[in-house]
Design a protein around this nucleic acid. Structure first.
Lengths: 210, 210
DNA sequence: CAAAATAAGTTGACATTGTCTACATTTACT
DNA sequence: AGTAAATGTAGACAATGTCAACTTATTTTG
């Protein structure tokens, strides 16, 4: 019946409440957005009392952190897949991963909002433990690193700097779109993605000219 | 003593509570961040009862909207000033306005967060009335429009598309930095700003090559 | 294997917040 | 002056994050 902990029907101990709370949180995000995401509601969905989550998370921030970490894992996978499709060609790797980022954002807007709302790297608020969350950035940096190693782009700028620039470009586009900061109907998903294509063209030309 | 409404010392009617609430909200933002911004706290700071704000704002969202509108006004001014410093040279206008955007963001991080958290253009949630909020975007679009008119860049892409790309670049950089999504000390303000410079170089080269 | 320790869940409480309704006071307009 | 409108207050309500005290299941161990 239940996905996990299918030992007995109804028992005092849930079995894997921690996972269940994260799953519930994701469902709330998808249905009601980040505003609807409350500790008590996740508990309700998991079928436990309102303070049960405190046995698995220090506070709300930590639950949000776990949900965000799952998001970073998925984003990293999406980017890795996109890069793999590039087949080692710098231009295509950059283009496809850029599109993948924006597509991930528009398909999971509330999840991305949560991912960027947590206080990472803030002392005393380290919601995400482990380094898997930096993998997404490392993937992008890797694209530039390889291109430099192959002599396709100049080694003028360090890969992390170029990666930050690229990340900022696709993230900015994503954020503006998912926060609906431009009038609706102004731009379609396809136009936004083709703008990313144009940006890659600019970047490649600009880099080569160095 | 008081900035506004200096008619009498203590009176039942505040005089200009609406403005006072917005000012209080800005102070809360600067001191305690967006999390600390509550209706009741703004009322407290303005020295009125907890429900007095409801005489001037339908709900919390509308107060936030007014605070955000003030932010857009200030951002627009910062961008206009930066563009003016460019002296009509496309490259400098783009570079200085880009730097101005990132500087505004890093100097007013919580304000920018609020500006991008409101539901603009969402039916039933139009927190900002009037069009002054779109002026910032229009300023950037104007830079490209003039450059096209002068034949400095190709007319291949419409100005709004180029403006969106540019906006996304500087906004993405700002958002990543103010949300502290990269390890602290990884990049300094100066490095971030010089990255913007590099981006302008890429853009100009990329555009000219079209 | 029984007993003790620990992990996991529950109940009830508290302060804070956004919001609503009913009421009070001040200002504006005839 | 006297009424209507604008503005502010007081009190209530439900929802939320969090904590302390208690209960129940599981694990460890003598």
């Amino acid at each position: 019946m239940s996905e996990k902990a299918n030992h007995r029907k109804k028992q005092y101990h849930h079995g894997d409440l921690k996972e269940a709370l994260i799953t519930a949180g994701l469902a709330i995000l998808a249905e009601g957005g980040a505003e609807a995401l409350s500790l008590r509601e996740t508990a309700r969905r998991a079928g436990v009392s309102h303070s049960a989550p405190y046995r698995h998370f220090q506070n709300k921030e930590q639950l949000i952190g776990a949900i965000a970490a799952e998001g970073f894992r998925r984003l990293t996978k999406a980017l890795s897949d996109a890069i793999a499709l590039g087949g080692g060609r710098f231009h295509e790797e950059l283009r496809l991963s850029g599109r993948a980022y924006v597509e991930f954002a528009l398909n999971n807007p509330e999840h991305l909002k949560v991912m960027f709302s947590i206080k990472r790297f803030v002392p005393g608020h380290d919601c995400i433990h482990g380094v898997e969350d930096l993998d997404a950035f490392a993937r992008i940096a890797g694209v530039f690193e390889r291109a430099q190693a192959e002599g396709i782009i100049p080694t003028d700028q360090p890969p992390p700097a170029l990666a930050l620039l690229a990340w900022a470009q696709v993230h900015g586009m994503s954020h503006i779109l998912i926060e609906k900061q431009i009038p609706p109907g102004t731009i379609s998903l396809e136009s936004a993605l083709s703008l990313i294509d144009s940006w890659v063209v600019f970047m490649c030309r600009g880099l080569k000219a160095l």
